[in-house]
């Protein structure tokens, strides 16, 4: 697990160098966006349940997937779905705070597509739900922070497809 700072240090150390100008610029903008990141993380954590509910309502709830025969039919499956969306939101928030996607690979994406395929969870519907979560999150936190969160939601989608 790493963040924007440790990621740069790790890659510089392998080359035995100080940070180059590009690295310094990235760190500077990371530090400058820090307050926004911390504030956004707090905002999301206070509204996490609502965000998941809204995302499901927007993308899955009124489609065939929740009807008999669909993959979200039965409460147990519905619960599993919102639990996973909960995870996605929490890890996307971690990654946004860290300014680095590595935690998404480590904790979410490794083997997830294979797991979903073997369980028969439809990937396209999952991606639709994550995209809906991106939209409702942006509505909550505003355009700037929403754009940054979008990076990590999109990364999850890219890792799934």
């Amino acid at each position: 697990m790493q963040d924007a700072i440790t990621a740069l240090i790790n890659s510089s150390d392998v080359q035995g160098r100080y940070l180059d100008d590009n690295g310094l610029d990235r760190l500077q903008s990371y530090f400058r966006s820090g307050e926004l990141r911390a504030r956004t993380a707090l905002n999301i954590s206070a509204n996490a349940n609502t965000l998941v509910t809204q995302a499901v309502a927007k993308s899955l709830m009124y489609t065939d997937i929740t009807a008999p025969g669909g993959n979200m039919y039965t409460c147990r499956r519905y619960a599993a779905c919102i639990r996973d969306l909960d995870y996605f939101l929490r890890y996307a928030t971690y990654a946004m705070l860290a300014g680095d996607v590595s935690i998404l690979d480590e904790r979410i994406l490794n083997g997830l597509r294979e797991t979903y395929n073997s369980l028969g969870v439809p990937i396209s519907a999952t991606i639709r739900a994550v995209q809906a979560m991106k939209e409702v999150t942006t509505d909550l936190v505003g355009a700037d922070a929403g754009k940054e969160m979008g990076v990590y939601f999109d990364y999850i989608c890219a890792g799934l497809s």
Binding site: Y30, G34, A38
Partner: peptide, 9 residues
């Protein structure tokens, strides 16, 4: 973490 960001520069 906010303090850490503030002292970052």
């Amino acid at each position: 973490i906010g303090d850490f960001f503030e002292t970052g520069e």
